[in-house]
Computed example of a mutant assay.
Amino acid sequence: MSEPRQLDVVLGERSYPIWIGAGLLSDSARWRRAIRGRHVLIVSNTIVAPLYLDAVRHGLAGLDVVSVVLPDGEQHKTLAHCSVVLDALAQQKANRDACVIALGGGVVGDLAGFAAACWMRGIDFLQIPTTLLAQVDSSVGGKTGVNLPAGKNLVGAFHQPRAVVIDTDTLRSLPAREYRSGLAEVVKYGAIGDADFFAWLEQHAAALIARDSAAVAEAIARSCLHKAGVVARDEREDGERALLNFGHTFGHALETASGYGQLLHGEAVAIGMLLAARLSAQLGRAPAADSERLQALLQALRLPVALPPGSNAETLLRLMYLDKKNLSGQLRLILWRGLGQAEIVPDVSDVAIRQVLQQA
């Protein structure tokens, strides 16, 4: 097994490593040192647990380990299932030095991290993301939370993990649609702040679709490096970190409108990024040619670029007003000046947004 790559999220005493490499689940000597107490609760789901739960438990020999296996899917990222995790911690008699391990995709990571943030006002948690989307995005940065029927991630907390363990071997078991969904978040990093990385993705689209190990590892590392830098500079999304939500205001509205789980998160973000790019062009803020490049790359990565059939512009616009980036009832969208140049734009008119939605 080759030495994994290590990146660091630098947040003073709350700094933590991101390890990226093949075979990391079996390298428990590396990640077990991030666990400080005796009680460990592993949270996984019905898809991931049969594949990887035993390997993680094996690496925790000698500790008091219990596990919670949740149903798979965004529709299960709820307060009710968070309560299931908290009840398990209570039954375990977990102390303040306990650790929650999130073993799964973004739903598991968000929910397990939120439970860890709530238990005794905050205990340790470890991210072991097993989907590409979680590896390049949700596992890094400490955003945790659950959904409400009214909207996505409306209940949550900032709570940084002790470490992020990205075993690239777990991507072998990932269904093709889930894998492609993760590529949308990879594209986002190039779109918002690294035109050279965007060009690299254009050149390596075929290799990424084929899951070439070298290309995938490079894409993960460059994505995590970008996010780690942003989080270090703006942990609680007071400014620059909001740029990471490029396409997400549209995307979250699409997820909510279509019913959680109908559109995968990355699929909704892909559509949302293109809508944001088109809106930027419509407002005269960016060249239309860059929107066309974005659309071409998303299509090369086999991601959707059109609204789902039956989408309603008025419904989507109403849901966009629930976005957490909004202030004083005014929409604040992440748009761009072109490739690699994202920006926060307040007070975009409903008329302009409605027009882009109706033309999509």
Rank of each mutant, 00 (worst) to 15 (best):
residue 302 R to H: 13
residue 59 G to R: 03
residue 325 K to N: 05
residue 149 P to W: 11
residue 321 Y to F: 13
residue 174 L to Q: 04
residue 284 G to L: 02
residue 99 C to R: 01
residue 153 N to R: 03
residue 280 S to N: 06
residue 302 R to P: 02
residue 101 I to Q: 01
residue 311 S to T: 11
residue 58 H to I: 11
residue 119 W to E: 06
residue 200 W to Q: 07
residue 322 L to W: 11
residue 241 R to M: 12
residue 44 S to P: 00
residue 273 M to R: 01
residue 321 Y to L: 13
residue 293 R to N: 04
residue 301 L to S: 05
residue 313 A to Q: 06
residue 176 A to D: 13
residue 313 A to F: 08
residue 242 A to C: 12
residue 125 F to G: 02
residue 13 E to T: 14
residue 93 K to H: 13
residue 22 A to F: 10
residue 60 L to E: 11
residue 24 L to P: 00
residue 155 V to Y: 00
residue 76 H to Q: 13
residue 314 E to G: 10
residue 236 R to M: 09
residue 204 H to C: 06
residue 163 A to L: 09
residue 166 I to L: 11
residue 65 V to T: 08
residue 96 R to G: 01
residue 54 D to K: 13
residue 291 S to R: 02
residue 100 V to C: 10
residue 350 D to I: 07
residue 159 H to T: 07
residue 189 Y to D: 06
residue 334 I to C: 02
residue 162 R to N: 05
residue 190 G to Q: 01
residue 324 K to S: 09
residue 272 G to A: 04
residue 80 A to H: 10
residue 300 A to C: 04
residue 317 L to R: 10
residue 235 E to T: 10
residue 311 S to K: 09
residue 278 R to W: 11
residue 196 D to T: 14
residue 114 F to H: 04
residue 250 F to H: 07
residue 53 L to C: 04
residue 81 H to I: 02
residue 259 G to L: 08
residue 247 G to T: 09
residue 138 S to A: 15
residue 263 L to R: 00
residue 306 A to R: 14
residue 98 A to Q: 05
residue 291 S to C: 13
residue 353 I to N: 03
residue 99 C to Q: 05
residue 268 A to Y: 04
residue 330 Q to K: 14
residue 196 D to K: 12
residue 158 F to G: 01
residue 178 E to H: 14
residue 286 A to M: 08
residue 343 E to C: 12
residue 119 W to N: 04
residue 86 L to F: 08
residue 247 G to H: 11
residue 150 A to L: 14
residue 234 D to M: 03
residue 347 D to N: 15
residue 231 V to G: 03
residue 224 C to D: 09
residue 307 L to K: 07
residue 316 L to E: 03
residue 163 A to E: 11
residue 101 I to A: 00
residue 256 T to K: 14
residue 130 T to K: 00
residue 184 A to P: 06
residue 134 A to S: 13
residue 97 D to E: 13
residue 41 L to C: 12
residue 327 L to T: 11
residue 237 E to R: 05
residue 158 F to S: 03
residue 56 V to I: 10
residue 236 R to D: 07
residue 134 A to Q: 00
residue 354 R to P: 12
residue 275 L to Y: 06
residue 52 Y to P: 00
residue 298 L to T: 01
residue 57 R to L: 08
residue 123 I to C: 11
residue 74 E to R: 09
residue 71 P to K: 12
residue 281 A to D: 08
residue 333 L to A: 08
residue 58 H to C: 14
residue 118 C to F: 03
residue 348 V to A: 10
residue 187 V to I: 12
residue 345 V to A: 12
residue 19 W to S: 10
residue 207 A to R: 10
residue 285 R to N: 11
residue 122 G to K: 15
residue 13 E to R: 15
residue 5 R to G: 11
residue 272 G to W: 09
residue 180 R to F: 01
residue 141 G to Q: 02
residue 240 E to P: 09
residue 92 Q to F: 05
residue 302 R to Q: 14
residue 57 R to I: 08
residue 172 R to A: 15
residue 209 I to L: 14
residue 237 E to M: 03
residue 284 G to R: 03
residue 286 A to Q: 07
residue 317 L to V: 11
residue 51 L to Y: 00
residue 187 V to Q: 09
residue 148 L to M: 15
residue 250 F to R: 08
residue 243 L to G: 09
residue 228 A to N: 11
residue 250 F to A: 07
residue 176 A to H: 10
